[in-house]
Nucleic acid binder design. Structure first.
Lengths: 177, 177
DNA sequence: AACTACATGTAAACTGTTACATGATTGG
DNA sequence: CCAATCATGTAACAGTTTACATGTAGTT
């Protein structure tokens, strides 16, 4: 049950409309939690219902009109409570690793190409994160506690992409030999 | 839609009952695809319905009695077709990284303990995988293609746990300083 | 007879994905 | 006025999780 907390975090960083949130989930927020606009609109409705957020006042609150939300004190309290909760890490689910294991049983022809394709995708993602790191976290901006935390999170995304790049590279060399 | 293919792979490696599959998903299969017994029983029903697997003949096929399944040719063909399909990697979803980002906004008190707890869990998982590697993949058993593939998959699990151990260690040192 | 482990399953709630619907605003 | 883009939503379905239900077999 993390999507509402991801949205609360995003809204605390900056009040936004549903579509703006969707864009932020496609970029910076997406490297630790992804969501589609349909999920986001549904969750915004629930959070408003629960009194955790509210729509900023506007004259014409109709369909097709931008609707911005901000977090209410109850929402901030809910998020603060959630941060201190403990939760075990979710086990991995990788369709690619599963394909490899299946290929060990039934054989696989085009798997090499698929590994190369994934290598390209992860390399591109890694490059993008490294650009974000250079732009948003230059050495002089890593002083305050919040900045250190945000940088740590990005670092997680970076290291994870590095893991994939390295493992895929290794896998391709193993399959070649 | 990978669970049925995970089950087909497992059943090809060794015909099993639902509970045996559950145990295998908790162990070796779990490091690339996890599932609960409820998911597995439902999927076994669907796969049987679809003619991809069948229950081995038995005198007393009632509730509470063990029921073993084996893969039919149609099931093997379905799996072979799936292996050659392409599929983009799913974006990461980590509640722990999200907690860190949220802590940058609302502050977090017990987060250090939670990071240490996760470090312990990932270290334990890593040790377990390394034992499996020593037991099941000694250097002389890495010759055949299927063995090389299975070892590659395990290697993925190992390297991923290593990533978490390293990142968590780094995070704890950052938070200390 | 009661307890425990084995074994299969059902039901409901929640989360995530895919396809579609509707209206508003802006530029050509 | 038309098309593209912005913006919010609905509906249906697929996948996952949690709680519970039921029956068998062996042990004390």
């Amino acid at each position: 049950m993390s999507l509402p907390h991801a949205i609360l975090t995003a809204l605390l960083e900056k009040p936004s409309s549903g579509l703006e949130l969707t864009r932020r989930f496609d970029k910076s927020i997406g490297y630790f939690w992804s969501a589609t606009h349909q999920q986001i609109y549904r969750e915004l409705g629930r959070l408003e219902q629960a009194g955790h957020i509210r729509a900023l006042p506007s004259e014409t609150p109709t369909r097709g009109q931008k609707k911005e939300y901000e977090v209410l004190p109850a929402g901030r309290a809910e998020l603060a409570g959630w941060v201190d909760r403990t939760e075990d890490p979710k086990p991995l689910r990788s369709a690619l690793l599963l394909r490899l294991r299946a290929a060990a049983v039934v054989g696989g022809v085009g798997l090499r190409d698929e590994l190369e394709r994934h290598l390209g995708l992860h390399q591109a993602q890694l490059d993008e994160y490294l650009e974000i790191e250079q732009r948003d976290f230059p050495p002089e901006r890593r002083d305050t506690e919040p900045d250190r935390l945000r940088h740590l999170v990005l670092r997680g995304g970076i290291d994870l992409e590095r893991f994939w790049v390295e493992w895929l590279t290794h896998a391709l060399s193993e399959l070649a030999g």
